[in-house]
């Protein structure tokens, strides 16, 4: 087995030094970011509001001059999606937590991001189509139903978290029982190209990736619901549908970038602390502990977001 250069004995102090320097720089960067955080947060919220207004103006323009404004509506919707997802909230913490703690690849992260976002748009479109066009409910009742569906979405996130916790726990127990065996197996699969401390997991099959994405996207975006209602009120429902899908793509893009960042960051923190002496059983245990913590956090996130959603849907005089 060929060892990567950084893991050779001579390179260890260099690697350690680089690691320490990175930590110090990372810390300084974080400090600086924290200082500007209120400004950043405020400008994100202002930008969101700007796009919110721009979007309503464009839908209105489309109602009058469809040919001229159709494309720009799609552009504005896409941009709205990008900034909406970049702003506070939007449950993006869910996907980031999931990817930072589990073993998904970059590709899976990007796929999950886009499927979850588009699914959110589709749920919103489905809700409006069913409740308004077929059942003739009031718009207000649609936003309320949207809030209830959102709560179901957060319950799904909690279930996903529980599943990950149980999975990590079982794997932890098993790896303790068969640690010698697994160490042996592992040395065959682990080529030089693989410098991650995460042991290659059995590839999640497509159905499971889809399941994860859907449980994260099982929430209609309230913003999209408002856009669709508005489009319906001014009789351009189909443009509303297109705008909603464009919002989904924009949201997906932001989430995919965050997903990629969290996958890289995860692998980076792993290599930083990886040492030659480390056995594979340690790496497995590490992965299980990360998986377990991530699962717990997802339960916590799902619960907090559920609480906020309940607060809004039960006690809001303007909803």
């Amino acid at each position: 087995m060929i060892k990567p250069l950084l893991n050779s004995v001579a390179a260890r102090p260099i690697s350690l030094g680089l690691g320490l320097v990175s930590i110090v720089f990372g810390f300084i960067l974080l400090k600086q970011l924290m200082a500007y955080w209120p400004d950043i947060l405020r400008s994100i919220i202002d930008t969101q509001r700007y796009f919110h207004q721009l979007l309503s103006t464009h839908i209105k323009d489309v109602a009058n001059h469809a040919d001229t404004y159709g494309w720009s509506l799609l552009g504005v919707s896409f941009a709205y999606g990008v900034f909406h997802a970049a702003g506070p909230g939007h449950g993006k913490a869910i996907i980031v937590t999931y990817l930072a703690s589990q073993k998904e690849s970059l590709k899976q992260g990007v796929v999950i991001s886009f499927i979850a976002s588009l699914f959110q748009s589709l749920i919103a479109i489905g809700l409006i189509t069913f409740l308004v066009l077929i059942l003739n409910l009031k718009f207000r009742e649609v936003t309320q139903t949207g809030q209830q569906v959102e709560q179901i979405g957060y319950i799904l996130v909690m279930l996903l978290g529980s599943y990950l916790v149980i999975k990590a726990f079982i794997s932890f127990v098993r790896s303790r029982q068969t640690s010698i065996q697994s160490q042996h197996d592992h040395s065959h699969e682990h080529g030089e190209a693989c410098n991650h401390s995460y042991v290659p997991d059995k590839k999640l099959n497509r159905a499971k990736t889809l399941g994860v994405a859907l449980s994260m996207g099982m929430r209609p975006c309230s913003g999209a619901i408002l856009v669709l209602i508005y489009a319906q009120v001014i009789n351009v429902f189909w443009y509303g549908v297109l705008a909603t899908l464009a919002i989904g793509v924009g949201t997906g893009l932001t989430l995919a970038i965050l997903a990629a960042a969290s996958v890289y960051a995860r692998d980076w923190t792993q290599t930083l602390f990886q040492s030659d002496s480390e056995s594979v059983s340690h790496a497995t245990r590490m992965a299980d502990i990360m998986g377990f913590t991530g699962g717990l956090l997802l339960i916590f996130l799902g619960w907090s977001l559920y609480q906020i959603a309940i607060q809004v849907s039960q006690n809001h005089p303007l909803l």
Partner: peptide, 14 residues
């Protein structure tokens, strides 16, 4: 690391 990533939860205005 994981906790710091997941701590950014807010409700946001619609």
């Amino acid at each position: 690391f994981i906790i710091s990533l997941s701590s950014q939860i807010y409700a946001h205005p619609h």
